[in-house]
Design a protein around this nucleic acid. Structure first.
Lengths: 250, 250
DNA sequence: TTTAGTTGTATAGAGCAATAGACAAATATT
DNA sequence: AATATTTGTCTATTGCTCTATACAACTAAA
């Protein structure tokens, strides 16, 4: 057995149910290969001893992970890991969604959920270096890999310069390809701001997360070769499924 | 009043108590200035209506945030914001802790919690390009800003090349200064891997977090001017107090 | 076939979480 | 001084969480 006497403490009276704490820890451990590396979970009794709780509490945690599709339980045989590895999403000067995950997934897909034209908020205007209230195009997109939602992004573009961008994106499902239709053959990631928070109701629905899950939030500005901002985007990643790689080539 | 009819939904039967969900949302909203931008919180009744819960549930959430030092309640007057803004921690080719936060805080401090020499795990050996089992120095450090814990790091260095590094660090409280004593006047951030997870028991204690809190985990490799790895580090940031800025200068 | 090991189901009790209503205490406003 | 607003305390009730115990159902191995 691989799992030695790892004490994995849980906190009582914290406002977070023990079964959920355990589910979160197990999901994390499975994602990093610490637990169930051989595809099989230790028996419920062993887990309950490790976490210092009743067997039924562990069962609740397992039930939640089965519901999520992380585990699969078979009566009489055991509990098995259904899906494991975490995707690594690169952030660099040349960050692009599709290319970044190319080697790690069989199937990738981006969906345009909604698009609209709206006046720029001060936050958006500042990022795109526009005057506040100027028209901007907003794109709501969802990216999936191997059938599982990976990220949910909201992007803004200058409406004047990129009129019809949504149509181009709907056709190509690619930001890079869409930019090409506007004469931008190359672009660069100027800055990225990374934070983390609990998933809100919208995140839970869009990314098919379970309550209490964590999202990594990346707020980014892309610029054209002249250094002019062309895209401002806030992307929410499911922290259980993705990690961000920042390569700072000197 | 600034806070309009923002619906802020909470999820029932999720294994996370409503008061904790609300506390998390409020902490987040306060950190980004969405809530209590004028330093004052809406009355409990108004909050309970916004979140769709009983007043007592909101009171539990407020009590938790008072305990954390985020809020201060005064009978008859109202509830007030005690500390607000989030630090922005830059990640670039020249990432250094002290310089990064210089402009944002009055007081910074790094503490050496522990140091030891141990054989390199496969993970550490791979990062530092050593043979597995080679001796490495491990440093456990805590960084605080304005009296509040900001990050908790575990660093590894090649023991042969950096014998006595812990002593140097204990004296200078600075990685940069310690490297100088070993003839390294400059070094670079090679790569950074960012992920997020729930804080474990150790994080809660070290960073003085409340259960259910989130930590941003940055796993980084620093290299000397020749490109040879000199430091491998895993840093845990309190996600409520810090965000990471990735500047990708082309 | 028997046995051991594992997951699934059932029941009961103790403690926490959330709701509800009422009122006290302190402050600010009229 | 009187009133309204706001936080603090108390009691009671309901439902969820966790524990404990027992046994059923299924699988694999002796």
């Amino acid at each position: 057995m691989i799992d030695a006497g790892l004490k994995s403490p849980v906190t009582r009276k914290s406002g977070v149910a023990l079964w959920r704490q355990i589910a979160d820890q197990m999901r994390q451990a499975i994602g990093t290969g610490v637990l169930g590396a051989d595809g099989r979970l230790p028996p419920e009794i062993a887990l309950s001893e490790r976490f210092g709780v009743n067997r039924h509490t562990v069962r609740s945690a397992i039930a939640a992970l089965v519901q999520e599709g992380v585990l699969r339980a078979e009566q009489g045989r055991g509990t098995f890991v259904e899906s494991r590895k975490r995707l690594s999403y690169p952030i660099s000067a040349r960050t692009r969604f599709s290319t970044g995950l190319r080697d790690q997934t069989r199937d990738r897909r981006s969906t345009l959920l909604a698009d609209m034209v709206e006046p720029a908020s001060s936050r958006v205007a500042e990022a795109l270096k526009l005057t506040a209230g100027a028209d901007v195009i907003r794109l709501e997109t969802l990216s999936e890999a191997d059938g599982r939602p990976v990220s949910r992004a909201t992007s803004w573009f200058e409406a004047q310069r990129f009129a019809g961008f949504a149509k181009a994106y709907a056709k190509t499902s690619s930001i890079t390809a869409s930019f090409k239709q506007f004469g931008i053959d190359d672009y660069f990631r100027h800055s990225t701001l990374v934070s983390a928070r609990h998933a809100d109701a919208a995140d839970l629905a869009d990314l098919k997360l379970s309550p209490g899950a964590i999202v990594l939030v990346a707020v980014a500005i892309n610029v054209d070769p002249e250094g002019k901002p062309i895209q401002f985007a806030e992307t929410r990643f499911a922290a259980d499924r993705v990690e961000l790689t920042v390569s700072t080539e000197a």
